[in-house]
Nucleic acid binder design. Structure first.
Lengths: 100, 100
DNA sequence: TATATATTTGGCACTATAGCCAAATAATAG
DNA sequence: CTATTATTTGGCTATAGTGCCAAATATATA
C-alpha cells in the first residue's frame, strides 16, 4: 500500500474512531436533531463540562462537527449529516447477533 | 437516557470503534473484495500474525466479520457489507476540510 | 472595574489498546 | 507418532484515551 492510500485509510479511521465512543456518538445523534450549546450537551450527557468539551474538540478535529460562537455560548452542529444515515447499517450489525 | 437506549448506543459505538483503526479498516476494505485467509491478510497488512489475529477477533466480536475454518486455514468474510457503502460518507467528512 | 457565566485547557490518575515474542492449539502430511 | 503449517492465546511493555478537578480564558452584565 502506498503512502497516499495509507493516509486516506488513516483519515477515515480517524472519523470512525471519533464516532466510536458512547458519549461522542450520543452527542452526534443529539446534534442530528439540531444545534446545541455545550451547556445543553453537558446536561444531557451528565458528565463534567471539561469532559464534554474535550469530546467536542475531538469531534471537531475529526471533521464531524463545527462550532459557532454566539456571545459566551458555543453552539455545535453536525457538519456531515450523512453520517446519520449510516447508523441504520450499524444497527444491522448489532441485530445480526454476534456482538459480545 | 434509559438503560436500553444506553446499551444501543454502546453497541453502535463498539462497531464504530472496531472500524476506527487503520489496520482493521484496511482489513474490512480488503474483505469487501472477497474472503481472505489470515495468512493473506498478514502479508497485506505487514504485521505480526498475532497482531492480525487479534484485530480479526475484535472485528468478529463487534459483529463486523465472520470466520470460516477450512482445514488448517481460517477464512474471514465481511458479515454486513452495507458498512462499505458508508465509506462514501466518511470520505465526504475527510474532504470537507477540517481534519487535523 | 468587579462579578458571574460559558467554555477551554492543563494536569493528573486510571484504564484500555497496540503490537511484538513466545507458547499453545489445531489440522495436515509423511 | 513426528514434523510442519496455520492460527490463536498469554504475557509483556509502551502508548493512547478517559474523566475529573482546578485554573485559565472569554464574554456579558452590574
Amino acid at each position: 500500500m502506498d503512502d497516499k492510500a495509507q493516509s486516506i485509510i488513516d483519515a477515515k479511521a480517524k472519523v470512525l474512531k471519533a464516532l466510536g465512543h458512547p458519549t461522542r456518538l450520543f452527542i452526534v445523534e443529539e446534534l442530528a436533531r439540531g444545534k446545541r450549546c455545550v451547556c445543553e450537551l453537558v446536561k444531557l450527557v451528565g458528565a463534567d463540562f471539561s469532559t464534554v468539551s474535550k469530546h467536542l474538540t475531538l469531534l471537531k478535529n475529526a471533521g464531524v462537527v463545527q462550532d459557532d460562537k454566539r456571545g459566551q455560548m458555543v453552539f455545535y452542529t453536525l457538519k456531515v449529516p450523512c453520517i446519520l444515515r449510516f447508523m441504520d447499517c450499524i444497527e444491522a450489525v448489532i441485530v445480526s447477533g454476534s456482538c459480545k
